[in-house]
Protein backbone atom coordinates (compact mmCIF):
# COMPACT_ATOMS: atom_id res chain seq x y z
CA UNK A 1 0.00 0.00 0.00
CA UNK A 2 1.49 3.27 -1.10
CA UNK A 3 -0.79 5.81 0.51
CA UNK A 4 -3.28 5.15 3.22
CA UNK A 5 -5.76 7.54 4.80
CA UNK A 6 -7.19 6.48 8.13
CA UNK A 7 -10.27 8.12 9.67
CA UNK A 8 -9.46 11.55 8.25
CA UNK A 9 -11.73 14.20 9.65
CA UNK A 10 -11.69 17.87 8.76
CA UNK A 11 -13.92 20.81 9.52
CA UNK A 12 -14.12 24.47 8.53
CA UNK A 13 -15.55 26.55 11.36
CA UNK A 14 -17.15 23.55 13.05
CA UNK A 15 -18.83 22.37 9.84
CA UNK A 16 -17.57 18.86 9.12
CA UNK A 17 -16.29 18.69 5.57
CA UNK A 18 -14.62 15.31 5.82
CA UNK A 19 -16.18 12.69 8.04
CA UNK A 20 -13.88 9.79 8.84
CA UNK A 21 -12.58 9.17 5.35
CA UNK A 22 -10.63 5.97 4.72
CA UNK A 23 -8.96 4.95 1.49
CA UNK A 24 -5.71 3.74 0.02
CA UNK A 25 -3.81 4.22 -3.19
CA UNK A 26 -1.46 1.71 -4.79
CA UNK A 27 1.63 2.71 -6.73
CA UNK A 28 0.75 3.63 -10.29
CA UNK A 29 -2.91 4.30 -9.55
CA UNK A 30 -4.68 7.06 -11.42
CA UNK A 31 -7.83 7.84 -9.47
CA UNK A 32 -10.59 10.36 -10.08
CA UNK A 33 -12.46 11.84 -7.15
CA UNK A 34 -16.00 12.64 -8.23
CA UNK A 35 -18.74 14.40 -6.35
CA UNK A 36 -20.84 17.52 -6.16
CA UNK A 37 -19.58 20.92 -5.01
CA UNK A 38 -18.96 20.81 -1.29
CA UNK A 39 -18.68 17.02 -1.20
CA UNK A 40 -15.13 17.43 0.14
CA UNK A 41 -13.04 16.61 -2.95
CA UNK A 42 -10.65 19.54 -2.71
CA UNK A 43 -10.43 19.30 1.04
CA UNK A 44 -9.50 15.64 0.85
CA UNK A 45 -6.76 16.37 -1.65
CA UNK A 46 -5.35 19.22 0.42
CA UNK A 47 -5.29 17.07 3.55
CA UNK A 48 -3.00 14.54 1.87
CA UNK A 49 -0.03 16.89 1.60
CA UNK A 50 -1.01 18.91 4.63
CA UNK A 51 -1.97 22.14 2.90
CA UNK A 52 -4.86 21.65 5.30
CA UNK A 53 -4.23 19.87 8.56
CA UNK A 54 -6.85 17.23 9.37
CA UNK A 55 -8.51 17.49 12.74
CA UNK A 56 -8.26 13.82 13.29
CA UNK A 57 -6.87 10.77 11.56
CA UNK A 58 -3.60 9.95 9.84
CA UNK A 59 -2.28 9.80 6.33
CA UNK A 60 0.59 7.44 5.65
CA UNK A 61 2.92 7.55 2.68
CA UNK A 62 4.83 4.31 2.31
CA UNK A 63 4.11 3.69 5.98
CA UNK A 64 5.39 7.12 7.10
CA UNK A 65 3.08 9.55 8.83
CA UNK A 66 2.73 12.69 6.73
CA UNK A 67 2.65 14.85 9.84
CA UNK A 68 6.17 13.79 10.76
CA UNK A 69 7.53 14.38 7.26
CA UNK A 70 7.09 18.14 7.52
CA UNK A 71 8.12 20.06 4.42
CA UNK A 72 9.91 16.93 3.12
CA UNK A 73 6.49 15.90 1.86
CA UNK A 74 7.04 18.22 -1.11
CA UNK A 75 9.66 15.75 -2.40
CA UNK A 76 7.09 12.97 -2.46
CA UNK A 77 3.80 14.67 -3.24
CA UNK A 78 3.17 17.56 -5.59
CA UNK A 79 0.01 19.55 -5.85
CA UNK A 80 -1.68 21.34 -8.74
CA UNK A 81 -3.99 23.98 -7.31
CA UNK A 82 -7.13 25.27 -9.01
CA UNK A 83 -6.14 28.79 -8.11
CA UNK A 84 -3.02 30.00 -9.85
CA UNK A 85 -2.22 33.60 -10.53
CA UNK A 86 -0.52 34.74 -13.65
CA UNK A 87 2.57 36.72 -12.83
CA UNK A 88 5.55 38.29 -14.52
CA UNK A 89 7.87 35.30 -14.34
CA UNK A 90 9.14 33.37 -17.32
CA UNK A 91 7.66 29.93 -17.89
CA UNK A 92 11.10 28.46 -17.25
CA UNK A 93 11.39 30.19 -13.88
CA UNK A 94 7.85 29.18 -12.94
CA UNK A 95 8.55 25.53 -13.73
CA UNK A 96 11.94 25.73 -12.02
CA UNK A 97 10.13 26.63 -8.77
CA UNK A 98 9.17 22.97 -8.55
CA UNK A 99 12.79 22.37 -7.50
CA UNK A 100 12.22 24.50 -4.39
CA UNK A 101 11.98 21.49 -2.04
CA UNK A 102 15.45 20.38 -3.15
CA UNK A 103 17.21 23.75 -3.28
CA UNK A 104 19.43 24.46 -0.31
CA UNK A 105 21.51 27.51 -1.22
CA UNK A 106 21.22 27.93 -4.93
CA UNK A 107 19.88 26.37 -8.07
CA UNK A 108 22.16 23.66 -9.43
CA UNK A 109 22.77 22.49 -12.95
CA UNK A 110 20.82 19.37 -12.10
CA UNK A 111 17.78 21.51 -11.27
CA UNK A 112 18.10 23.28 -14.60
CA UNK A 113 18.49 19.99 -16.50
CA UNK A 114 15.42 18.45 -14.85
CA UNK A 115 13.41 21.57 -15.63
CA UNK A 116 14.57 21.46 -19.23
CA UNK A 117 13.61 17.80 -19.45
CA UNK A 118 10.08 18.35 -18.17
CA UNK A 119 9.58 21.37 -20.42
CA UNK A 120 10.57 19.16 -23.33
CA UNK A 121 8.30 16.35 -22.22
CA UNK A 122 5.25 18.63 -22.11
CA UNK A 123 6.31 20.39 -25.35
CA UNK A 124 6.57 23.77 -23.68
CA UNK A 125 9.87 24.70 -25.39
CA UNK A 126 8.25 27.28 -27.62
CA UNK A 127 6.83 29.23 -24.69
CA UNK A 128 9.63 28.61 -22.19
CA UNK A 129 10.89 32.19 -22.27
CA UNK A 130 7.45 33.82 -22.39
CA UNK A 131 5.98 35.42 -19.30
CA UNK A 132 3.36 33.51 -17.36
CA UNK A 133 0.98 36.49 -17.47
CA UNK A 134 0.96 36.30 -21.26
CA UNK A 135 -0.21 32.68 -21.43
CA UNK A 136 -3.64 31.27 -22.17
CA UNK A 137 -5.46 29.35 -19.45
CA UNK A 138 -4.52 26.01 -20.96
CA UNK A 139 -0.86 26.96 -21.25
CA UNK A 140 -0.77 28.18 -17.64
CA UNK A 141 -2.30 24.90 -16.48
CA UNK A 142 0.38 22.95 -18.34
CA UNK A 143 3.05 25.12 -16.73
CA UNK A 144 1.65 24.32 -13.28
CA UNK A 145 1.55 20.60 -14.13
CA UNK A 146 5.15 20.89 -15.35
CA UNK A 147 6.13 22.51 -12.05
CA UNK A 148 4.52 19.61 -10.20
CA UNK A 149 6.54 17.12 -12.29
CA UNK A 150 9.82 18.92 -11.67
CA UNK A 151 9.24 18.11 -8.00
CA UNK A 152 9.86 14.46 -8.98
CA UNK A 153 6.98 13.28 -6.83
CA UNK A 154 5.66 9.77 -6.43
CA UNK A 155 2.13 11.16 -6.12
CA UNK A 156 0.56 14.09 -7.95
CA UNK A 157 -2.57 15.68 -6.57
CA UNK A 158 -4.63 17.63 -9.08
CA UNK A 159 -7.45 19.87 -7.93
CA UNK A 160 -9.85 20.50 -10.81
CA UNK A 161 -7.05 20.61 -13.39
CA UNK A 162 -9.42 21.17 -16.30
CA UNK A 163 -11.61 23.91 -14.87
CA UNK A 164 -12.09 26.89 -17.18
CA UNK A 165 -10.17 25.25 -20.00
CA UNK A 166 -11.42 24.83 -23.55
CA UNK A 167 -12.12 21.30 -24.72
CA UNK A 168 -8.80 20.94 -26.54
CA UNK A 169 -6.81 22.02 -23.50
CA UNK A 170 -8.90 19.74 -21.25
CA UNK A 171 -7.98 16.75 -23.36
CA UNK A 172 -4.34 17.83 -23.59
CA UNK A 173 -4.00 18.21 -19.83
CA UNK A 174 -5.70 14.86 -19.14
CA UNK A 175 -3.53 13.16 -21.74
CA UNK A 176 -0.42 14.56 -20.09
CA UNK A 177 -1.58 13.36 -16.68
CA UNK A 178 -2.31 9.88 -17.98
CA UNK A 179 0.96 9.74 -19.86
CA UNK A 180 3.11 10.74 -16.89
CA UNK A 181 1.39 8.33 -14.56
CA UNK A 182 2.14 5.51 -16.99
CA UNK A 183 5.65 6.55 -17.98
CA UNK A 184 6.97 7.60 -14.58
CA UNK A 185 5.09 4.88 -12.68
CA UNK A 186 3.74 7.40 -10.21
CA UNK A 187 0.27 7.72 -8.72
CA UNK A 188 -2.20 10.50 -9.17
CA UNK A 189 -5.38 11.65 -7.52
CA UNK A 190 -7.56 13.98 -9.57
CA UNK A 191 -10.51 15.90 -8.20
CA UNK A 192 -12.63 16.55 -11.24
CA UNK A 193 -16.05 17.91 -12.09
CA UNK A 194 -16.43 16.70 -15.62
CA UNK A 195 -17.60 13.11 -15.16
CA UNK A 196 -17.29 12.13 -18.79
CA UNK A 197 -13.78 13.52 -19.01
CA UNK A 198 -12.91 11.36 -16.01
CA UNK A 199 -14.61 8.30 -17.52
CA UNK A 200 -12.66 8.73 -20.72
CA UNK A 201 -9.18 8.94 -19.15
CA UNK A 202 -9.38 7.28 -15.76
CA UNK A 203 -10.16 3.74 -14.64
CA UNK A 204 -10.42 4.08 -10.86
CA UNK A 205 -12.87 6.24 -8.99
CA UNK A 206 -13.76 7.56 -5.58
CA UNK A 207 -17.33 8.85 -5.36
CA UNK A 208 -17.78 11.38 -2.58
CA UNK A 209 -20.96 12.63 -0.99
CA UNK A 210 -21.35 14.86 2.08
CA UNK A 211 -17.78 14.44 3.25
CA UNK A 212 -17.84 10.66 3.01
CA UNK A 213 -16.68 8.16 0.44
CA UNK A 214 -19.84 6.78 -1.08
CA UNK A 215 -18.16 4.19 -3.26
CA UNK A 216 -14.72 3.45 -4.63
CA UNK A 217 -13.33 1.04 -7.17
CA UNK A 218 -12.98 0.46 -10.88
CA UNK A 219 -15.43 0.80 -13.73
CA UNK A 220 -17.74 -1.64 -11.95
CA UNK A 221 -18.90 1.09 -9.56
CA UNK A 222 -19.94 3.28 -12.45
CA UNK A 223 -23.63 2.45 -12.29
CA UNK A 224 -26.73 4.56 -12.79
CA UNK A 225 -27.77 3.94 -9.18
CA UNK A 226 -24.43 5.07 -7.76
CA UNK A 227 -24.50 8.21 -9.87
CA UNK A 228 -28.00 9.22 -8.97
CA UNK A 229 -27.12 8.67 -5.29
CA UNK A 230 -23.85 10.61 -5.49
CA UNK A 231 -24.97 13.52 -7.59
CA UNK A 232 -28.69 13.58 -6.91
CA UNK A 233 -29.58 13.59 -10.60
CA UNK A 234 -30.97 10.89 -12.87
CA UNK A 235 -28.60 9.80 -15.60
CA UNK A 236 -28.16 6.97 -18.08
CA UNK A 237 -24.93 5.20 -18.85
CA UNK A 238 -24.16 4.42 -22.49
CA UNK A 239 -21.18 2.53 -23.77
CA UNK A 240 -19.25 4.00 -26.64
CA UNK A 241 -16.14 2.14 -27.83
CA UNK A 242 -16.30 -0.01 -24.69
CA UNK A 243 -16.13 2.98 -22.36
CA UNK A 244 -19.09 4.13 -20.31
CA UNK A 245 -20.45 7.64 -20.75
CA UNK A 246 -22.98 9.45 -18.70
CA UNK A 247 -25.95 10.95 -20.50
CA UNK A 248 -28.20 13.37 -18.66
Amino acid sequence: MFIQAKDVRFSYNSVDVLKDVNFYIEKGDLIAILGNNGAGKSTLIKCINRILKPKFGTILIEGQDVEKLGSEIAKKVSYVSQRNQATRLTVFDAVLLGRRPYVKWGISNKDLEITKGVIGMLSLQEISMRFVDELSGGELQKVIVARALVQEPSLILLDEPTNNLDIKSQIEVMNIVKQIVQEKKISSLVAIHDINLALRFIDKFILMKDGKIFASGGLEIITEENFSETFGVMAKIKNIDDRPFLVF
Partner: peptide, 20 residues
Protein backbone atom coordinates in the same frame (compact mmCIF):
# COMPACT_ATOMS: atom_id res chain seq x y z
CA UNK B 1 13.44 34.90 -2.97
CA UNK B 2 12.30 31.57 -4.44
CA UNK B 3 9.55 31.42 -1.82
CA UNK B 4 8.37 34.89 -2.82
CA UNK B 5 8.31 33.77 -6.45
CA UNK B 6 6.16 30.79 -5.53
CA UNK B 7 3.80 32.90 -3.39
CA UNK B 8 3.21 35.12 -6.42
CA UNK B 9 1.69 32.23 -8.35
CA UNK B 10 -0.57 31.27 -5.48
CA UNK B 11 -0.61 30.44 -1.78
CA UNK B 12 -1.88 26.90 -2.17
CA UNK B 13 0.62 26.05 -4.86
CA UNK B 14 3.42 27.48 -2.72
CA UNK B 15 2.24 25.41 0.24
CA UNK B 16 2.34 22.39 -2.05
CA UNK B 17 6.04 23.14 -2.56
CA UNK B 18 6.57 22.78 1.17
CA UNK B 19 6.72 26.53 1.78
CA UNK B 20 5.33 27.82 5.06
Amino acid sequence: SLNYNAIQIGDEGAKGLGIN
